[in-house]
Nucleic acid binder design. Sequence first.
DNA 1: GCAATAAATATAAGCAGCTAATATAAGATC
DNA 2: GATCTTATATTAGCTGCTTATATTTATTGC
Lengths: 161, 161
Amino acid sequence: MKTSEVDAQAEDVAAGLARLLSLIRWLLPPGMSLTSASTLSTLERSGPCRLTALAAAEGVTQPAMTQLVGRLADAGLVTKCADPADGRVVHVQLTDSGRDYLARRREFRTERLSGLFAQLSKADQDALAAALPAMNALVSMQRDEQLRPADSTGSAVRTEH
Amino acid sequence: MKTSEVDAQAEDVAAGLARLLSLIRWLLPPGMSLTSASTLSTLERSGPCRLTALAAAEGVTQPAMTQLVGRLADAGLVTKCADPADGRVVHVQLTDSGRDYLARRREFRTERLSGLFAQLSKADQDALAAALPAMNALVSMQRDEQLRPADSTGSAVRTEH
DNA sequence: GCAATAAATATAAGCAGCTAATATAAGATC
DNA sequence: GATCTTATATTAGCTGCTTATATTTATTGC
């Protein structure tokens, strides 16, 4: 049985996404790890989070997130505050300085991309814009997948180590 | 002066690309760094390369690439061979085993993406497929940009460290 | 032809950021 | 109130990057 047409499409899209990696890395400002940057975005999107939830969302271990948040807090980008109801939990939230940092980061990457984007044909520009909803849908499906406790067909994320 | 419509599009696309990072990471098989994986792909695409050229292509320093190639060679995925004409240079090339690895990697990510991709509407699937040429164009423009010796407006890549 | 310079790679020391394993401390349960 | 569980912190170790420097091999000027 040959692969279906949809699978062939999926293969092409997977290859295309993989190729995007270097571009995405190039769009990030230097001096901050991918995980740190992603964590800040998550905090901006979801609001204050507890440590363990953040670790799960970013796909790293809890100790890694403890260290990461420590560094971000040292840099003044987030604050750690205790939960009044539960003395164990730590809520991490973005500071104004963290929000500023994210804004500057957005500016940086928009500026970098604009130069390339402007060189595309109008058709290509529109094709990219038209694909954005689908891209977002994929990302949020993946996020759900990652948070799921590894139930069925090989959907384990970090479990296989 | 307000941002033009194209700039607004570029901003949206940049944000969309940044969000893709976690998905892309999830599509890569564990146990290999992003740079290693990317280096193998580059070797497959471009054929044998000298060390320094690889380092420039991947945006890392030459010592980093020396180490990386050493590890890949230990794993049997690449071989280092001397240049008969110039005793200084080392040519790095993919082994059959390296090619196998890349094939397995492609299989892995296609399988992972297919599950999500199938849940998209047909329209979204087509929109993604239609955006692939534009994505590839962006990536190759970025590659050119990265190899350029940091000439004009802030196009320095690793120069600012 | 040979000293001086340049180029390609290797080595060394150090740091960031991850892991697994374990410790601590604070609820929850009975 | 002893025990179990949950949330975070600590520790030791590894990978993979950095900068600075050493080594080896062309290339150049004279």
